[in-house]
Nucleic acid binder design. Structure first.
Length: 409
RNA sequence: GUGGGCGUAGCUCAGUUGGUUAGAGCGCCAGGUUGUGGUCCUGGAGGUCGGGGGUUCGAGACCCCUCGCUCACCCCA
């Protein structure tokens, strides 16, 4: 858990605004779903055997005795909302929302983190996979990130996956003694997880293991081929990662992940996603294909820092009002300027001219507007350019808005 | 869930084998300049030394417990 304060928070606003503009331009609408859901929403789709469900969910019993969970990811709640409200497909939604995982924090991994994402329900068309992946890629690229690797894979469907899993299980059984310690004991429960293991022992074994892409059924193979062709056509660079096995059970066919090469840490995954053609049914809806992705805002910003792009910059104030005549004039002038659309702050507590000027300087404002006894008597305001060398000028009180507008244009 | 590291002023950190009233730099406030910031000088405010318990004549320091942060493992965003 961590706080995000000004001016870092201004960067978050820009990031989210950019994402919203991009995906809304592709037909996605904002979906706001509750932070808490019945725990079953997550158990059913993500999978009882996954780490997220097994040991990372923030669950609690509410006053009615129901087991609730703070959402650990963004897809399941949006799909639940689809099932509940049955909008007409194709239905495209995007979200920005906090997610929770009860694990020990470290750099780039938080118990509460924010995810940006989209979900598209209805079409099974591979072209939709291409659209979704390209949106995520374009967003990441628009931030200025270059050292990002897009990994794509296909995990087949209910037709071909069981056969492949058995093939892999048999292969791993033959090489059991060469696997890492933990996997020698439990590779049979979920052979796919061994592909994801980063120990040199397991990597040596899986390097020669049968590959999913060689064992896809005909429709899945055709789907994957079209996805790759589409990404090529859009100049979205990617690698096929035969070890890419994402942690949630609901994925079918296309899966993908973005990893930063600029982050020197284990937490280099910026986000990922995939197709989940069975999830809507699992949550009680009609058979409906779907695909989506989630991106971790904190991770993306860490990557931006690492690459020196998308820096924190807070929009400056236009003006800072200094009033040493009691404050009534500042109340009026500040309100008038704000109503005219300017970004304005002011000094309070009747502090000295000198100290209000210091505050004006520290506020970052472009100009100071000074009201002293003389200006008050003459009906003027002193306009002092804080960011350039010009002299302070007296402006008639009634001309201030026009003067500022001309100055800042 | 497992294993390290760290908690002293708003921030970054000193603080000797346990020994007067816990310090510095930066920041903040004020004055120098009775109407002017960004430079300079002077002064000032600000601390239950994360919390609780213990050892001791005496604890910021040593011991135990606890909370928080942090890094790594597992896994993930």
């Amino acid at each position: 858990m961590h706080d995000v304060l000004w001016p870092e928070s201004a960067r978050w606003e820009r990031l989210v605004a950019r994402f919203a503009a991009l995906v809304e331009g592709a037909g996605y609408g904002l979906a706001i779903t509750p932070i808490v859901e019945h725990v079953g929403i997550f158990n059913r789709g993500i999978g009882e055997g996954s780490d997220v469900v097994g040991k990372e969910m923030y669950t609690f019993v509410d006053r009615d005795g129901q087991v609730m969970a703070l959402r650990p990811e963004g897809t399941a709640p949006v799909v639940r909302a689809y099932v509940q409200h049955h909008p007409v497909p194709p239905w495209k939604a995007w979200y920005v929302a906090p997610s929770f995982r009860h694990e020990n924090p470290q750099h780039g991994r938080y118990r509460q983190h924010f995810q940006l994402g989209v979900e598209a329900l209805g079409p099974s068309d591979a072209d939709l996979d291409v659209e979704v992946i390209a949106l995520a890629f374009d967003f990441i690229a628009s931030l200025g990130l270059h050292q990002v690797i897009l990994k794509v894979h296909s995990m087949g469907n209910e037709v071909c996956r069981p056969g492949y899993v058995e093939l892999l299980r048999a292969f791993l059984a033959e090489h059991r003694s060469q696997l890492c310690g933990p996997h020698q004991a439990r590779f049979e429960q979920n052979p796919l997880r061994v592909l994801d293991c980063k120990t040199p022992e397991c990597e040596d074994v899986t390097e020669a293991a049968p590959r999913f892409v060689d064992n896809l059924c005909e429709p899945c193979a055709a789907h994957f081929a079209r996805v790759r062709a589409g990404l090529d056509a859009l100049d979205v660079p990617f690698v096929v990662d035969h070890r890419l096995v994402r942690g949630f059970d609901y994925y079918t066919r296309t899966t993908f992940e973005f990893a930063s090469g600029a982050i020197d840490a284990a937490q280099n995954a910026l986000g990922g996603g995939g197709r989940y053609n069975g999830l809507v049914e699992m949550l009680g809806g009609p058979p409906t294909p779907g695909i989506g992705f989630g991106l971790g805002i904190e991770r993306i910003l860490i990557a931006c820092d690492a690459e020196g792009v998308f820096a924190t910059e807070a929009p400056p104030l236009h003006a800072y009002v200094i009033d040493v005549t009691g404050g009534e004039s500042a109340v009026l002038l500040t309100a008038e300027l704000r109503r005219a659309g300017f970004r304005v702050d002011r000094g309070f507590d009747g502090r000295s001219m000198k100290s209000q000027f210091k505050s004006a300087d520290h506020s970052g404002a472009l100009v100071a507007l000074v009201i002293g006894d003389r200006e008050l008597a003459e009906g003027t305001v002193g306009l002092n350019p804080l960011r350039s060398d010009g002299e302070q000028r007296d402006i008639p009180r009634s001309d201030i808005v026009d003067e500022l507008r001309a100055l800042l244009s």
